[in-house]
Design a protein around this nucleic acid. Structure first.
Ligand code: SF4
Ligand code: SF4
Lengths: 138, 138
DNA sequence: TTTAATTTCTATTTTGAAGTGGAATTTTGT
DNA sequence: ACAAAATTCCACTTCAAAATAGAAATTAAA
Protein backbone atom coordinates (compact mmCIF):
# COMPACT_ATOMS: atom_id res chain seq x y z
CA UNK A 1 0.00 0.00 0.00
CA UNK A 2 1.12 3.45 -0.63
CA UNK A 3 -0.70 6.35 0.92
CA UNK A 4 0.58 9.81 0.10
CA UNK A 5 3.10 11.16 2.54
CA UNK A 6 0.57 13.73 3.62
CA UNK A 7 -1.94 11.01 4.46
CA UNK A 8 0.69 9.26 6.54
CA UNK A 9 1.30 12.51 8.38
CA UNK A 10 -2.39 12.99 9.00
CA UNK A 11 -2.85 9.47 10.32
CA UNK A 12 0.08 9.95 12.66
CA UNK A 13 -1.46 13.14 14.01
CA UNK A 14 -4.63 11.30 14.96
CA UNK A 15 -2.74 8.28 16.22
CA UNK A 16 -0.75 10.55 18.49
CA UNK A 17 -3.70 12.57 19.73
CA UNK A 18 -5.80 9.58 20.68
CA UNK A 19 -2.91 8.15 22.70
CA UNK A 20 -1.98 11.32 24.58
CA UNK A 21 -3.66 12.60 27.74
CA UNK A 22 -3.80 16.21 26.67
CA UNK A 23 -7.15 17.74 25.87
CA UNK A 24 -5.98 20.51 23.57
CA UNK A 25 -3.03 20.05 21.24
CA UNK A 26 -1.13 23.14 20.17
CA UNK A 27 0.66 22.99 16.85
CA UNK A 28 3.91 23.51 18.70
CA UNK A 29 3.27 20.51 20.90
CA UNK A 30 2.53 18.33 17.89
CA UNK A 31 5.64 19.58 16.11
CA UNK A 32 7.70 18.56 19.10
CA UNK A 33 6.28 15.08 19.21
CA UNK A 34 5.71 14.11 15.62
CA UNK A 35 8.51 14.06 13.15
CA UNK A 36 6.87 16.32 10.58
CA UNK A 37 8.18 19.61 9.12
CA UNK A 38 6.76 22.46 11.17
CA UNK A 39 5.23 24.59 8.46
CA UNK A 40 3.85 21.64 6.62
CA UNK A 41 2.24 20.28 9.75
CA UNK A 42 0.65 23.65 10.52
CA UNK A 43 -0.82 23.85 7.03
CA UNK A 44 -2.07 20.30 7.32
CA UNK A 45 -3.78 21.04 10.63
CA UNK A 46 -5.62 23.92 9.05
CA UNK A 47 -6.68 21.68 6.22
CA UNK A 48 -8.03 19.03 8.57
CA UNK A 49 -9.92 21.75 10.38
CA UNK A 50 -11.66 22.79 7.20
CA UNK A 51 -12.81 19.23 6.69
CA UNK A 52 -14.26 19.23 10.17
CA UNK A 53 -12.13 16.42 11.51
CA UNK A 54 -10.51 18.59 14.15
CA UNK A 55 -11.55 21.93 15.59
CA UNK A 56 -9.19 24.80 16.17
CA UNK A 57 -9.17 27.00 19.23
CA UNK A 58 -7.50 30.25 18.43
CA UNK A 59 -5.54 32.60 20.60
CA UNK A 60 -3.51 32.03 23.70
CA UNK A 61 -3.68 28.49 25.09
CA UNK A 62 -5.41 27.53 21.89
CA UNK A 63 -4.80 24.46 19.80
CA UNK A 64 -6.69 21.62 18.24
CA UNK A 65 -9.23 19.13 19.53
CA UNK A 66 -11.22 16.37 17.90
CA UNK A 67 -14.21 17.80 16.07
CA UNK A 68 -16.24 14.70 16.88
CA UNK A 69 -15.96 11.52 18.83
CA UNK A 70 -12.94 9.47 17.83
CA UNK A 71 -15.05 6.47 16.91
CA UNK A 72 -16.82 8.61 14.33
CA UNK A 73 -13.63 9.45 12.43
CA UNK A 74 -12.56 6.73 10.03
CA UNK A 75 -9.21 6.38 8.34
CA UNK A 76 -11.02 6.85 5.05
CA UNK A 77 -12.35 10.19 6.28
CA UNK A 78 -8.81 11.32 6.92
CA UNK A 79 -7.38 10.06 3.65
CA UNK A 80 -10.31 11.53 1.80
CA UNK A 81 -9.77 14.95 3.31
CA UNK A 82 -6.08 14.97 2.57
CA UNK A 83 -5.70 13.39 -0.86
CA UNK A 84 -9.08 12.06 -1.84
CA UNK A 85 -10.22 8.44 -1.77
CA UNK A 86 -10.93 8.32 -5.51
CA UNK A 87 -7.64 6.77 -6.46
CA UNK A 88 -8.18 3.88 -4.08
CA UNK A 89 -11.53 3.06 -5.57
CA UNK A 90 -10.26 2.96 -9.13
CA UNK A 91 -8.81 0.25 -11.28
CA UNK A 92 -5.39 -1.21 -10.62
CA UNK A 93 -4.57 -0.99 -14.31
CA UNK A 94 -5.51 2.66 -14.61
CA UNK A 95 -8.26 2.27 -17.16
CA UNK A 96 -10.53 5.26 -17.52
CA UNK A 97 -13.69 3.35 -16.82
CA UNK A 98 -14.49 -0.02 -15.36
CA UNK A 99 -17.17 -2.28 -16.71
CA UNK A 100 -18.17 -4.96 -14.26
CA UNK A 101 -19.76 -6.89 -17.12
CA UNK A 102 -16.56 -6.97 -19.06
CA UNK A 103 -13.81 -6.57 -16.51
CA UNK A 104 -10.09 -6.59 -17.05
CA UNK A 105 -8.00 -9.70 -16.66
CA UNK A 106 -6.99 -8.82 -13.13
CA UNK A 107 -10.44 -8.17 -11.83
CA UNK A 108 -11.24 -11.53 -10.28
CA UNK A 109 -8.01 -11.63 -8.39
CA UNK A 110 -7.78 -8.02 -7.44
CA UNK A 111 -11.30 -7.00 -6.62
CA UNK A 112 -11.77 -8.93 -3.36
CA UNK A 113 -8.46 -7.64 -2.10
CA UNK A 114 -9.27 -4.09 -3.04
CA UNK A 115 -12.57 -4.46 -1.22
CA UNK A 116 -10.76 -5.56 1.90
CA UNK A 117 -8.54 -2.52 1.75
CA UNK A 118 -11.51 -0.21 1.38
CA UNK A 119 -13.30 -1.97 4.24
CA UNK A 120 -10.21 -1.54 6.35
CA UNK A 121 -10.07 2.18 5.67
CA UNK A 122 -13.80 2.69 6.02
CA UNK A 123 -14.29 0.64 9.17
CA UNK A 124 -11.20 1.47 11.17
CA UNK A 125 -11.72 4.52 13.33
CA UNK A 126 -9.38 6.77 15.24
CA UNK A 127 -10.73 5.17 18.42
CA UNK A 128 -9.31 1.87 17.18
CA UNK A 129 -5.87 3.45 17.21
CA UNK A 130 -5.94 3.76 20.98
CA UNK A 131 -3.30 1.68 22.66
CA UNK A 132 -4.99 -0.48 25.26
CA UNK A 133 -1.92 -2.39 26.34
CA UNK A 134 0.33 0.58 27.01
CA UNK A 135 2.92 -1.05 24.89
CA UNK A 136 2.60 0.45 21.48
CA UNK A 137 4.41 3.08 19.54
CA UNK A 138 2.82 6.06 17.93
CA UNK B 1 -4.24 0.58 -3.71
CA UNK B 2 -2.38 3.09 -5.65
CA UNK B 3 0.37 2.03 -7.99
CA UNK B 4 2.28 4.74 -9.77
CA UNK B 5 0.90 5.67 -13.13
CA UNK B 6 3.99 4.23 -14.74
CA UNK B 7 3.38 0.88 -13.05
CA UNK B 8 -0.15 0.90 -14.35
CA UNK B 9 1.19 1.52 -17.83
CA UNK B 10 3.66 -1.32 -17.49
CA UNK B 11 1.03 -3.76 -16.27
CA UNK B 12 -1.20 -2.83 -19.18
CA UNK B 13 1.60 -3.49 -21.63
CA UNK B 14 2.01 -7.02 -20.35
CA UNK B 15 -1.72 -7.56 -20.06
CA UNK B 16 -2.10 -6.56 -23.67
CA UNK B 17 0.80 -8.62 -24.94
CA UNK B 18 -0.29 -11.84 -23.28
CA UNK B 19 -3.76 -11.46 -24.79
CA UNK B 20 -2.70 -10.66 -28.34
CA UNK B 21 -1.73 -13.18 -31.00
CA UNK B 22 1.25 -11.30 -32.29
CA UNK B 23 4.70 -12.64 -31.62
CA UNK B 24 6.64 -9.40 -31.89
CA UNK B 25 5.18 -6.11 -30.69
CA UNK B 26 6.49 -2.94 -32.25
CA UNK B 27 6.30 0.22 -30.19
CA UNK B 28 4.03 1.68 -32.82
CA UNK B 29 1.61 -1.22 -32.52
CA UNK B 30 1.51 -0.85 -28.76
CA UNK B 31 0.98 2.90 -29.03
CA UNK B 32 -2.00 2.28 -31.28
CA UNK B 33 -3.58 -0.16 -28.90
CA UNK B 34 -2.76 1.12 -25.46
CA UNK B 35 -3.79 4.55 -24.38
CA UNK B 36 -0.35 5.72 -23.31
CA UNK B 37 1.58 8.79 -24.51
CA UNK B 38 3.85 7.68 -27.34
CA UNK B 39 7.20 8.96 -26.17
CA UNK B 40 6.57 7.91 -22.63
CA UNK B 41 5.64 4.41 -23.70
CA UNK B 42 8.78 4.10 -25.81
CA UNK B 43 10.97 5.14 -22.91
CA UNK B 44 9.16 2.72 -20.66
CA UNK B 45 9.71 -0.14 -23.09
CA UNK B 46 13.45 0.39 -23.13
CA UNK B 47 13.41 0.56 -19.36
CA UNK B 48 11.62 -2.78 -19.13
CA UNK B 49 14.18 -4.16 -21.56
CA UNK B 50 17.00 -3.15 -19.27
CA UNK B 51 15.36 -5.04 -16.44
CA UNK B 52 15.19 -8.12 -18.65
CA UNK B 53 11.43 -8.44 -18.58
CA UNK B 54 11.12 -7.97 -22.33
CA UNK B 55 13.69 -8.26 -25.09
CA UNK B 56 14.04 -5.79 -27.92
CA UNK B 57 14.60 -6.70 -31.54
CA UNK B 58 16.12 -3.78 -33.34
CA UNK B 59 15.85 -2.70 -36.92
CA UNK B 60 13.19 -3.21 -39.51
CA UNK B 61 10.33 -5.47 -38.46
CA UNK B 62 11.74 -5.27 -34.96
CA UNK B 63 9.85 -4.84 -31.74
CA UNK B 64 9.56 -6.42 -28.33
CA UNK B 65 9.01 -9.95 -27.07
CA UNK B 66 8.82 -11.48 -23.62
CA UNK B 67 12.29 -12.02 -22.25
CA UNK B 68 11.16 -15.14 -20.42
CA UNK B 69 8.12 -17.29 -20.08
CA UNK B 70 5.07 -15.32 -18.97
CA UNK B 71 4.58 -17.48 -15.89
CA UNK B 72 8.03 -16.41 -14.71
CA UNK B 73 7.18 -12.72 -14.70
CA UNK B 74 5.32 -11.59 -11.59
CA UNK B 75 3.47 -8.35 -11.09
CA UNK B 76 5.97 -7.56 -8.37
CA UNK B 77 8.80 -7.94 -10.88
CA UNK B 78 7.17 -5.34 -13.06
CA UNK B 79 6.39 -2.89 -10.29
CA UNK B 80 9.86 -3.35 -8.89
CA UNK B 81 11.49 -2.55 -12.22
CA UNK B 82 9.39 0.54 -12.74
CA UNK B 83 9.11 2.21 -9.36
CA UNK B 84 10.60 -0.17 -6.81
CA UNK B 85 8.71 -2.40 -4.39
CA UNK B 86 10.21 -0.77 -1.30
CA UNK B 87 7.31 1.54 -0.64
CA UNK B 88 4.86 -1.33 -0.55
CA UNK B 89 6.84 -3.15 2.08
CA UNK B 90 7.00 -0.19 4.40
CA UNK B 91 4.78 1.05 7.18
CA UNK B 92 1.38 2.56 6.53
CA UNK B 93 2.09 5.39 8.95
CA UNK B 94 5.40 6.32 7.39
CA UNK B 95 7.60 5.68 10.38
CA UNK B 96 11.28 5.47 9.60
CA UNK B 97 11.70 2.07 11.14
CA UNK B 98 9.35 -0.67 12.22
CA UNK B 99 9.83 -2.64 15.39
CA UNK B 100 7.83 -5.84 15.44
CA UNK B 101 8.30 -5.99 19.21
CA UNK B 102 6.76 -2.60 19.71
CA UNK B 103 4.59 -2.02 16.69
CA UNK B 104 2.37 0.93 15.95
CA UNK B 105 -1.30 0.98 16.82
CA UNK B 106 -2.34 -0.05 13.35
CA UNK B 107 -0.05 -3.01 13.05
CA UNK B 108 -2.40 -5.80 14.10
CA UNK B 109 -5.09 -4.67 11.73
CA UNK B 110 -2.91 -3.65 8.84
CA UNK B 111 -0.17 -6.23 8.70
CA UNK B 112 -2.22 -9.23 7.53
CA UNK B 113 -3.78 -7.14 4.81
CA UNK B 114 -0.44 -5.80 3.68
CA UNK B 115 0.84 -9.34 3.52
CA UNK B 116 -2.04 -10.32 1.26
CA UNK B 117 -1.24 -7.47 -1.07
CA UNK B 118 2.40 -8.48 -1.27
CA UNK B 119 1.41 -12.10 -1.86
CA UNK B 120 -0.89 -10.97 -4.62
CA UNK B 121 1.87 -9.03 -6.34
CA UNK B 122 4.47 -11.72 -5.81
CA UNK B 123 2.35 -14.67 -6.83
CA UNK B 124 0.38 -13.31 -9.73
CA UNK B 125 2.19 -13.76 -13.02
CA UNK B 126 1.70 -12.34 -16.46
CA UNK B 127 0.44 -15.77 -17.53
CA UNK B 128 -2.42 -15.30 -15.07
CA UNK B 129 -3.49 -12.25 -17.03
CA UNK B 130 -4.38 -14.36 -20.01
CA UNK B 131 -8.07 -14.25 -20.84
CA UNK B 132 -9.32 -17.81 -21.01
CA UNK B 133 -12.94 -16.99 -21.61
CA UNK B 134 -12.49 -14.63 -24.52
CA UNK B 135 -14.65 -12.14 -22.72
CA UNK B 136 -12.30 -9.80 -20.96
CA UNK B 137 -11.01 -6.36 -21.59
CA UNK B 138 -7.38 -5.37 -21.65
C1' DT C 1 23.65 -1.01 -51.30
C1' DT C 2 20.04 1.66 -50.34
C1' DT C 3 16.06 2.61 -47.73
C1' DA C 4 12.51 2.28 -44.55
C1' DA C 5 11.19 0.71 -40.18
C1' DT C 6 12.60 0.24 -36.01
C1' DT C 7 14.82 0.92 -31.15
C1' DT C 8 18.00 3.95 -28.25
C1' DC C 9 20.08 7.99 -26.26
C1' DT C 10 20.32 12.49 -23.98
C1' DA C 11 18.11 16.46 -22.72
C1' DT C 12 14.34 19.47 -21.63
C1' DT C 13 9.63 20.79 -20.06
C1' DT C 14 5.51 20.29 -17.36
C1' DT C 15 2.90 19.12 -13.42
C1' DG C 16 1.54 18.20 -8.81
C1' DA C 17 3.13 16.96 -4.15
C1' DA C 18 5.97 18.42 -0.54
C1' DG C 19 8.11 21.85 1.91
C1' DT C 20 9.28 26.91 3.28
C1' DG C 21 8.70 31.97 4.57
C1' DG C 22 6.65 35.79 6.59
C1' DA C 23 3.00 38.80 7.67
C1' DA C 24 -1.91 39.13 9.36
C1' DT C 25 -5.40 37.79 12.57
C1' DT C 26 -7.56 36.06 16.69
C1' DT C 27 -7.91 35.25 21.51
C1' DT C 28 -6.68 34.92 26.37
C1' DG C 29 -4.10 35.86 30.56
C1' DT C 30 -2.28 39.55 33.16
C1' DA D 1 -5.18 48.04 27.38
C1' DC D 2 -1.26 45.20 26.49
C1' DA D 3 1.45 41.47 25.21
C1' DA D 4 2.02 36.78 24.46
C1' DA D 5 0.55 32.65 22.32
C1' DA D 6 -1.73 30.76 19.13
C1' DT D 7 -4.03 29.89 14.30
C1' DT D 8 -4.64 31.54 9.40
C1' DC D 9 -3.54 33.30 4.95
C1' DC D 10 -0.93 34.03 0.68
C1' DA D 11 2.97 33.40 -1.90
C1' DC D 12 7.08 31.14 -3.10
C1' DT D 13 10.57 27.23 -3.66
C1' DT D 14 12.01 22.49 -4.26
C1' DC D 15 11.69 17.88 -5.81
C1' DA D 16 10.40 13.84 -8.29
C1' DA D 17 7.08 11.76 -11.53
C1' DA D 18 5.24 12.25 -15.94
C1' DA D 19 5.49 13.87 -20.46
C1' DT D 20 7.87 15.65 -24.57
C1' DA D 21 11.53 16.54 -28.19
C1' DG D 22 14.80 15.48 -31.60
C1' DA D 23 18.77 13.27 -33.21
C1' DA D 24 21.48 8.86 -33.43
C1' DA D 25 22.03 4.04 -34.07
C1' DT D 26 20.58 -0.54 -35.67
C1' DT D 27 18.77 -3.94 -38.69
C1' DA D 28 16.49 -6.41 -42.41
C1' DA D 29 13.84 -6.31 -46.51
C1' DA D 30 13.89 -4.90 -51.26
S1 SF4 E 1 -12.13 -4.76 -14.01
FE1 SF4 E 1 -11.71 -4.70 -11.80
S2 SF4 E 1 -9.49 -4.82 -11.64
FE2 SF4 E 1 -9.95 -4.33 -13.78
S3 SF4 E 1 -9.89 -2.12 -13.89
FE3 SF4 E 1 -11.98 -2.63 -13.45
S4 SF4 E 1 -12.13 -2.60 -11.21
FE4 SF4 E 1 -9.97 -2.66 -11.70
S1 SF4 F 1 4.12 -1.60 13.22
FE1 SF4 F 1 3.23 -2.61 11.42
S2 SF4 F 1 1.70 -1.18 10.68
FE2 SF4 F 1 2.99 -0.03 12.11
S3 SF4 F 1 4.56 0.87 10.89
FE3 SF4 F 1 5.38 -1.06 11.51
S4 SF4 F 1 4.81 -2.51 9.89
FE4 SF4 F 1 3.56 -0.68 9.61
Amino acid sequence: MRLSKTSEYALRIFSFMINDDKQVFSAKYLVNNLNIPEKYLRNLLTKLTKFNLIKSIKGRDGGFVFAKNADKITLADIVDAVEGMDKYEKCILGFDYCDEERPCALHHRWHPLKQQILDFLNNTTVADLKDKEGNLRF
